[in-house]
Design a protein around this nucleic acid. Structure first.
Length: 343
DNA sequence: TCGCAATTCAGGAGGCGGTC
DNA sequence: GACCGCCTCCTGAATTGCGA
């Protein structure tokens, strides 16, 4: 059966297509009487009429669809999507999911360019790794005038709009909380992926914030750096560390909650109690287990859902023309302090 | 008749400009 | 203010025109 068009709706309601359009879009400046409005809405219902998005795109040049690009295995991408989807639902947009896995040596980002040129998407929100930079991609985005917002990527670029959590503020908040709970000088334990410690943008901001906070409080900084290895490869290192804390209380802030998990394990083996002997707190929610751990791990967490919302709102400003593409002012969101039992 | 290039048409919706 | 007519958007398919 042929699907109904706005022409059919107009005929059935006894009005012109312009009135149907005005009712559907609440077009400013075009008033529609209550009687005609009801007639149009009734015709829409009776004919099961739905706006043809492709046809609409022909006229408006927009697809009402935005691409969400990221690593599908990354749980934060899913969290970001929640916020993105919420905004898109409210604003009548669809989300096209684009996985970041490369195949046959093709940069998966390049596919996004094709989708944009084919008018299948109006813009892109990408969940990038913290501090991610890509000058070639930036050039392409500018060359093609693609509305694009990165979550966590391009933190030092003025060319790409991004949504960032304030890592410095998150560490300060964690340290203030830890200090208020224990009055112990906090140790900062920084886990890194090897083989060489090459701190990214977020890592640097965290460490700088820790050092500054310690200085301001007249305390001697104590930064421990540890190459990440899967348990139990490096259990001896953790045992030695936690063993050295025996007989005194310590307060530890870890950059990744993964490090907190290792401390929990070692403390269990050594016979120390988390929350009373060893006070632990994480500066992120990498493992998604903070709340489920026993005792529950206190943390300052990255608000990925809120970041997804903020990114979507900014992107729609670009696609709908209420903000110039050149205006790439960064959006900063605060970390969420989740006070639990470990600190 | 064939092959190619140019032109026309169809599809559905948005909204400007004009009328009452 | 309420409403209508008509132009416009883009692109693949169909049609037409023309030379070889």
């Amino acid at each position: 059966m042929k699907r109904a068009t706005s022409f059919d709706v107009a005929q059935k309601a006894g009005v012109s297509r312009s009135v149907v359009s005005a009712v559907l879009n609440n077009t400013r400046g075009i008033g529609v009487s209550e009687e005609k409005r009801r007639a149009v809405l009734q015709a829409i219902e009776e004919l099961n009429y739905v706006v043809d998005v492709q046809a609409k795109g022909m006229r408006t040049g927009r697809s009402q669809c935005i691409a969400a690009y990221g690593n599908l295995k990354n749980p934060f991408f899913a969290q970001m999507l929640q916020g993105l989807q919420k905004v898109c639902n409210e604003r009548g947009y669809y989300v096209l999911l684009c996985g970041a896995s490369a195949d046959a040596g093709v940069d998966p980002r390049k596919k996004l360019l094709d989708l944009f040129l084919q008018r299948r998407i109006d813009g892109i929100v990408s969940k990038d790794t913290t501090g991610y930079m890509n000058e070639e991609w930036e050039r392409e985005v500018h060359r093609l005038n693609i509305p694009h917002v990165s979550v966590e990527g391009f933190p030092e670029s003025d060319g790409i709009a991004s949504v960032q959590m304030d890592y410095g503020q998150s560490v300060r908040e964690a340290l203030d909380y830890a200090w208020s709970r224990t009055k112990l000088p906090p140790v900062y334990l920084e886990l890194f992926n090897g083989p060489v410690h090459a701190p990214n943008w977020g890592d640097r901001h965290r460490t700088q914030a820790y050092l500054a906070w310690m200085r301001e409080h007249g305390l001697e900084p104590n930064v421990l750096q540890k190459l990440y290895q899967a348990w139990p490869e490096d259990e001896a290192w953790w045992f030695d560390l936690v063993h050295s804390w025996k007989g005194r209380q310590v307060s530890v802030l870890t950059n990744w909650s993964r490090a907190s998990v290792a401390i929990y394990r070692a403390a269990y083996e050594v016979g120390l109690r988390i929350g009373s002997d060893v006070h632990v707190m994480a500066a992120d929610n990498t493992e998604q287990l903070n709340e489920a751990m026993v005792p529950a791990l206190s943390a300052v967490e990255v608000p990925y859902a809120e970041m997804g919302e903020a990114a979507a709102l900014r992107l729609l400003e670009y696609t709908e023309g209420t903000r110039a593409l050149a205006d790439t002012e960064r959006i900063w969101l605060p970390a969420k302090l989740m006070a639990r039992e470990s600190m």
